[in-house]
Design a protein around this nucleic acid. Sequence first.
DNA 1: TTTATAAGTCTACAGTCGTATACTTGTGCG
DNA 2: CGCACAAGTATACGACTGTAGACTTATAAA
Lengths: 192, 192
Amino acid sequence: MPEARRRDAAATRAAILDSARKAFARAGYDGAGLREIAAGAGVTAMLVSRYFGSKEKLFAEVLQGTMATPTVLSSQVLSSSRRGADMAAALVGLTARGAVPLDGFQILLRSASSPRAARIGRAEIEKRYSRLLAGALKGRRTAERAAIVFALVAGFQMMRQMIGLTALADAKPKDLERLLAPLFAQLVEGPL
Amino acid sequence: MPEARRRDAAATRAAILDSARKAFARAGYDGAGLREIAAGAGVTAMLVSRYFGSKEKLFAEVLQGTMATPTVLSSQVLSSSRRGADMAAALVGLTARGAVPLDGFQILLRSASSPRAARIGRAEIEKRYSRLLAGALKGRRTAERAAIVFALVAGFQMMRQMIGLTALADAKPKDLERLLAPLFAQLVEGPL
DNA sequence: TTTATAAGTCTACAGTCGTATACTTGTGCG
DNA sequence: CGCACAAGTATACGACTGTAGACTTATAAA
């Protein structure tokens, strides 16, 4: 139990955003309710509405904040000399069983069934990641290759964490990295 | 408007299953309501409950039926001598803009945020596809490689159809095939 | 200490959800 | 034709959804 917060609009706003991030990551856009989000921040549902205007705007702000700090595609990975292997290792590590699932992708995947959430997610991903990754690629079809990188990341995360395929959940991390690395390498470094 | 069906339990059951398949593919497990499904079959919501016991059991039966006939991993593709290229072509074709999105994967992706639906989906995918694909692979780590094939298929479908990434939606199909083919080939044919 | 105002809450509404109980109606058989 | 039984419907319940309007309360300045 965190100590009761004194009346502080900025701190309360931040607490709501934090609670919303966890709720959306756990249950997706449709599955997370305003009352649940509000309770997590120690306030009432109405305050959430008043602060963010609507659930949709709250979701947009959460996604924006979460995607501001990339994980799999961190600048460290992107500037590495072994980007394929580093991406594979980062992805496998971040989707391990007990890992904190508070990634922007997690929220996006769990919310993709809602058209409104999908639209917001697309805008955000195209504003940030696409430019980021496509800019780091050389050769042709950089936009398409970057998009397929996202697809592989998203699909792997989905099958491993959400669906929970046994073959991915129980595999040795090193094995998964060895299988993923050449795929990422091929996409990132371009055709041989 | 289809002509009114005479009282026929088997036909009604089939109509409900068909309507449910469309509804789940469009909105996912949580997003599709029993009343909507019932209306699509020209009956009331209660009849759906009576015939299938619960929404969860209905979903399981729908997924089971839909996944009985694989599309991307059809026997034709699996027996091809150019499996990587054929998988890529099948995937790109099936996720084209106007394509019928009535695949089992579509339902699964839109429902993965619901734990109950995810559990059912995992069971189904492991019962059918995993065995199917892993059996067609040679070499080591066949289960893991098959699972990553699913991940790539799922991620591509998600990013192209659900999120609607511009780079994938607007790309020339042939370009996408050329990028995906070596990835599938590497997974299917095994490490070089 | 009083008070203006921002911070936060209460109550309510119109809607949806899945499903349980009780009911009506159509249809094939004798 | 009549009737039994299956096929299908009506109504309702309790819980949940996002959010609108009116309300209370804490706090910082005067």
